[in-house]
């Protein structure tokens, strides 16, 4: 099932702006900022309570866009921007937490995002199921599935050990599956790949 298909003209506009930025066009950067800074700020603010960090990450993200617009190839400009911002946010959290935190053992490779899960997000059932999750589980699910972070990055962002991220992610999935099963639709939603 197709979730959505953005208008071609809009995607072309962002790509054109990024090409302009890659050439060093400051007006293009300003236009790109106006189009994307708002949602990026709101999204960062939902994930980080400290306004100063959000501000630094926001500015740093767009400075990075200015410097590395040449590395943007094609595809979703917003997604590309979010990848940069999410990494910056994790870095910022780590820099803040470095003094207090113990070093953990190296992480195991863990798949981060699940597209199949996103396929179901516009269905009411999944929304209901997510609503019933506890906030900690939802936070972990958001970091790993929606924000596309690895277990390690999610742990740094949320300030919890990696093992906890893994167990919470597992519990979140189990509970989601149970709720979806109760709703009687588990077999018919595109959410079947959830394991």
């Amino acid at each position: 099932m197709k979730r959505f298909r953005p208008l071609r003209a809009d995607r072309g506009y962002d790509a054109a702006l990024l090409r302009g930025i890659a050439r060093g066009d400051q007006a293009a950067l300003a236009a790109f900022y106006d189009r994307h800074a708002g949602w990026l700020h709101a999204r960062l603010a939902r994930r980080c309570a400290d306004a100063e960090t959000v501000r630094e990450v926001l500015q740093d993200t767009f400075v990075t866009v200015w410097r590395s617009a040449g590395s943007y190839r094609s595809g979703e400009a917003g997604g590309w921007l979010w990848v940069i911002a999410a990494r910056r946010l994790v870095d910022a959290q780590r820099a803040q937490a470095r003094a207090e935190r113990v070093v953990h053992e190296p992480p195991a490779a863990v798949p981060s995002a699940e597209d199949s899960a996103l396929g179901g997000l516009e269905y009411g059932d999944v929304g209901t199921a997510l609503d019933r999750l506890s906030p900690e589980l939802r936070e972990v699910l958001r970091a790993t599935v929606i924000d596309g972070l690895t277990t390690r990055e999610a742990a740094q962002l949320l300030g919890i050990p990696e093992g906890t991220v893994k167990t919470r992610a597992m519990r979140a999935r189990r509970e989601l599956r149970a709720v979806l099963g109760q709703l009687g639709n588990a077999a018919t939603t595109p959410w079947g790949g959830l394991a």
Partner: peptide
């Protein structure tokens, strides 16, 4: 979450949300 994933891909909605 739905909005955030959608905005990643849709420039028009991105600029509206901004």
């Amino acid at each position: 979450w739905s909005l955030e994933k959608h905005v990643e891909a849709c420039g028009r909605c991105a600029s509206a949300v901004s």
